[in-house]
Amino acid sequence: MTGVIEQATVGRRGGVRALWAGNPWAVVQRGLIAARSSSWVVVLSGFFEPVFYLASMGIGLGALIGTVQTSGGAEVSYAAFIAPALLAVSAMNGAIYDSTWNVFFKLNYGKLYEGMLATSLGPLDVALGEILYALLRGLVYAAGFMVIMQIWGLNLAWTAILALPAVLLIAFGFASLGMAVTSYMKTFQHMDWINFVLLPMFLFSATLYPITVYPEWVQGIVMAFPLWHGVELIRGFTTGVLSPDMGWHILYYVVMIAVGLVFTTKRMRALFLD
C-alpha cells in the first residue's frame, strides 16, 4: 500500500506557494460528502424561491400586464419575460450561497482551508474545487427550474436548451467573484454588504421589467452589474431571439470568472501560505 501512496503523491515540484496540484475534485468530493448531512430545507428553499416568484408574478401580475417587449424585440407573455431572469437569479443565488456564507464560515471558524493547504493541495485546487461545488448546486436549481418553465410553456424556442450551459457560466462567475470577495471579509457585518448588493441587483437588472423605462444613465449603471448580462443572455436563449450582443455577455462572465479566481487564489496564498 505504501507503494501506491508514494506513487500518488511524489514528484510535484513548485515552491511552498505553488498554485496547483490538479486535484480540485477532492475538494468537490468533500462538498458532496458534507452535503449529505446538510439541511435539505436550505436546498429546497433555494429551488422553490424562483418558482414562487414565477407563480405569483408571472401568473398574477402577468394577467394584468399582458405582453412585454424584450430587448431583442420579441413580444412575449409576462411570465415568459421574467422566467429566464428568475433562472439567472436562481443560478446566482445558488452559487452565491455556497461561495460566500459557506466559504466565510470555513475560512474564519472551521479553519478548513488551513487543513487542506497543509496537504499537497494548492490554493487554486481549493478555490476551484469550492467554486465547482457551488456551481453544481446552481446547476441543480437551474435544471429544476427549466423543467418548470417547460411545463408552463415558457421555453419559446429550441435554443432554450442553451440556457443550461449559460446558467453554468453565470453560476461560475458569481461563485468565483463571491469567493474572492468573501476571502476579504472578516466579520458577519461585512457579509451583510453582499446582500446589500444582491437585492438591488435582483430588482433592477431587467428581471421584472425592461430597463428601457429608465433614463440612459441609469441603464448604464444597471449594465455595469453582472446580473443584467446573465438575464439578457438567458432571455435571448429562452425566447429564441439571438443577437451578437450575447457574445459580450459571455465575455463579461469569462472576465468575471478569471478575476474572481485570481483574487481568491491570491488571498488563499496570503492567508495560509505566507
Binding site: 511524489v10 515540484r13 513548485g14 515552491g15 468533500r30 479553519k111 488551513e114 497543509a118 496537504t119 501560505l273
Partner: peptide, 24 residues
C-alpha cells in the same frame, strides 16, 4: 522553496488548534 507540495505530501501535520472538518 522548490518542492513545497512534494514535501507536504510526505509530512503529517497536527496543528496547535484542531482544524478537523466539522461538517463531516
Amino acid at each position: 522553496d522548490q518542492y513545497g507540495p512534494e514535501i507536504r505530501s510526505r509530512l503529517g501535520v497536527v496543528p496547535q488548534q484542531d482544524n478537523l472538518d466539522g461538517e463531516l
